[in-house]
């Protein structure tokens, strides 16, 4: 019996789809077509919020993510970090995730070469990871130097760093940039620091976390959400610090289109087969 194209579509080996997607990625990465990229309201708000900070203000980078999320979040984090350096802001990072200190070191490695006049301990500082999650965040609101044990990510005393001047509690920072992927993350910061102490926060999130975080934006508990690689690309565009996210947007758009086409084709196959089973009186599952 001849098998229709719709039946083939419905039972297509998913490895063909993976192979096709890989091919699309390779073609578009190697031959970018330069699709238009616009800066959305959220990223514009984030950019303007950082732009409005007075020179010398302290920005707290909450690097609460790990290597597995770096691909999605680093482009935005790097662009924001560079923007802070350009604005002569002081960047201090702390993390509730074990890999957070290493992630901040990666960010510094990306950003520092472009700003040779900026110094560790003067313009930026990596306090690294501390355990305790939300409880540690609470400690930061009571006594920040004590909460980090008086040392930075590398075990050096923070009292020697000029950047720590005027920073006794986390409420002293002008803004929090939360680079979050899970728990502890944005809700914990809102619960313990930003809401009770009115500290403004911009959060950089993976796409999967955006929908569940939107209520905090609607309630005014967040300044803005910079979402995923797309948000990173928009921030690179608006700040003028171009990076990997902008160059990848063509591939992202084509891949999304490919997925939509596959979903439509799969559904056509599914409904066609269902119709055929019904019209031939063959019974089958009434899905």
């Amino acid at each position: 019996m001849e098998v229709s194209i719709f039946t083939k579509l419905d039972s297509l080996d998913r490895r063909w789809i993976f192979a096709f997607q890989a091919l699309v990625f390779c073609i578009v990465i190697l031959n970018p077509v330069g699709l238009a990229l616009n800066v959305g309201d959220q990223v514009r708000t984030a950019f303007e919020a950082i732009e409005s900070l007075p020179e010398g203000s302290i920005v707290w980078f909450a690097t609460d993510y790990q290597a597995a999320n770096a691909a999605e979040l680093e482009p935005a984090a790097i662009a924001i970090f560079k923007h802070c350096m350009q604005k002569n802001l002081r960047v201090i990072s702390g993390s509730t995730w074990p890999e957070g200190g290493a992630m901040m070191s990666r960010l510094i490695n990306y950003v520092a070469p472009e700003f040779p006049d900026k110094e560790y301990g003067v313009d930026y500082l990596n306090l690294g990871y501390r355990p305790g999650g939300q409880v540690w965040l609470q400690q930061l609101t009571d006594d920040l130097p004590a909460a980090v044990g008086g040392i930075d990510h590398f075990g050096d005393p923070i009292s020697a760093y000029p950047i720590m001047e005027g920073l006794e509690v986390i409420q002293d920072v002008a803004m929090i940039i939360g680079i979050h992927v899970g728990t502890p993350g944005t809700p914990e910061y809102i619960r313990v620091i930003t809401d009770p102490h009115n500290v403004p926060m911009i959060t950089v999130l993976p796409a999967v976390s955006v929908a569940v975080t939107m209520p905090y934006l609607a309630s005014g508990q967040l300044v803005s959400i910079v979402a995923s690689l797309r948000g990173g690309a928009e921030y690179e565009l608006i700040s003028g610090f171009s990076g990997t996210a902008m160059t990848g947007m063509d591939s992202q758009s084509f891949m999304n289109l490919t997925i939509v086409i596959f979903v439509i084709l799969g559904n056509i196959g599914f409904f066609y087969n269902k119709y055929k089973e019904g019209s031939s009186g063959g019974g089958g599952d009434n899905v």
Partner: peptide
């Protein structure tokens, strides 16, 4: 979308 972004960066 998130998975596509991660895959994209690995391909880059």
């Amino acid at each position: 979308l998130g998975r596509v972004s991660v895959t994209l960066v690995r391909f880059q």
